[in-house]
Design a protein around this nucleic acid. Structure first.
Lengths: 141, 141
DNA sequence: ATAATTATTGATAACCACTTTCAATAGGAG
DNA sequence: CTCCTATTGAAAGTGGTTATCAATAATTAT
């Protein structure tokens, strides 16, 4: 489904700002971006774009399931396009690069949780921290 | 090893503020506290305690391995005493309560990561979100 | 013990990410 | 095309956290 329809069917409007931001997210699939990153990148497509609009748009995109919030333990929140494929991230503590990890053991964990508690898991968050290939080869570990 | 020794052997001083904060962390093992919580609770033991000192002390305790930072996706950072027993947290999205989960599948995951990438995992973070027993029984899910 | 040294503290101001406010603008339904 | 109202950007406001700095207090050397 295209962006215009996803917005209009829920009473929201299609604007050049939202189009620019959406394009940036699509062009950076798998690479979490913070509001400043998005502001700069989408600003190349639509220079008048305000940072406030970026914050508002990301909140909306998350609500509509268009984008996903990513917690990297950095000062600012990050976001990425919702590709529909569940995954996690591996963050290099040397160079800051982020890799996608499609493996997820949440289902196994959910069963273990059910065994010894009545907690109902509805969502989860996981990130791995360490050294990426490049930094390992450069001896930075 | 007692707090005084852990501090002094690394050139830091033992102060009543640090003692009060450490006691509060010990009394709340398994319950992540934010700086404001710590300020209020330790303030009962040492009323002149300043919030600034809480922030500085937690930074120091984390550096010394006395405390661990806990990311609950809330506005403020949380901390808990480092018991030496690795665990994660289950956060109730209805009442906000936090339960400890000792099960962790990081070792299995590390092997899977090693299989298809050269990323070297040094640490990780995981939290589960959902409904606690109480909220489930109260029909809040 | 006492004095000297310097880590620590608390109040205040500064900072930064993010949110709210509000008047001006611009989608899009009719 | 017109009107209704969602959306926008600038600027002010928040809230958590950090930096500044003079006063204080924990250790070390005397």
């Amino acid at each position: 489904m295209d962006l215009g329809k996803r917005l209009r069917t829920r009473g929201y409007r299609m604007t050049p700002q939202r189009i620019a931001i959406h394009e940036v997210l699509e062009e950076n699939e798998g690479k979490p971006l913070c509001p400043d990153d998005i502001h700069m990148l989408a600003g190349e497509k639509y220079p008048e774009l305000g940072l406030t609009t970026v914050y508002r748009t990301m909140e909306l995109f998350v609500k509509l399931g268009i984008a996903l919030p990513v917690h990297l333990h950095e000062e600012s929140q990050h976001y990425e396009i919702n590709s529909g494929i569940h995954h996690h991230h591996m963050v290099c503590i040397s160079c800051g690069s982020v890799e996608v990890l499609e493996t997820c053991l949440i289902d196994e964990l959910k069963e273990l949780v059910r065994d010894d508690s009545d907690f109902l898991v509805t969502s989860h968050c996981m990130s791995l921290f360490g050294y990426c290939t490049g930094c390992l080869k450069a001896g930075k570990a």
